[in-house]
Amino acid sequence: MTPQQLLDAARDLMTNPRPSMRRCWQRGCACLTRLALETGLRRYWQRHPRTASVARSPMWHQLIVLPRFLDPETARIARAAWFGLSRAAHHHTYELPPTLAELGGWHRDVTYLLSRLDPAPTSP
C-alpha cells in the first residue's frame, strides 16, 4: 500500500468505524497513520542511492538522521507525530486511547510530512 492509501484507510476508520472495530478503531487508526509515515519515510530514503541504507534502519535511527537531510522543524514534527502515534498504537495500562481530535491532528501532520518527503533527499 502506498502511504496515501494507508492515510485514506486511517481517515476511513476515523470517520466511519465499522461495528467490529468499535473498541479498537482509535488504535487501528493510529497504527495506520504511523505506518503511512514510516512507509513515506522509507520511500524517501530509497529515492537516493546514498541514503537507501537508512531505509533499512530502525525508525528511531531514521528520525535522528532526518534533520540532517530535511529542515529541523519538519524533522521535529515527524518525531512528535511518530512518538505520539507509537504511544497511541500500543496498549498502555491506565492510559486511555487517543481522542478523535488527537488522531485528526496526527493525520494532518503526517499528510503534511508526506508532502515534504516527496522529493528525493539532498545531501546535507
Binding site: T51, S53, V54, R56, S57, P58, W60, H61, I64, V65
Partner: peptide
C-alpha cells in the same frame, strides 16, 4: 545510536 548502526551507509 547511529554510530552503532552498522547497517547504515
Amino acid at each position: 545510536t547511529i554510530a552503532c548502526d552498522t547497517n547504515l551507509d
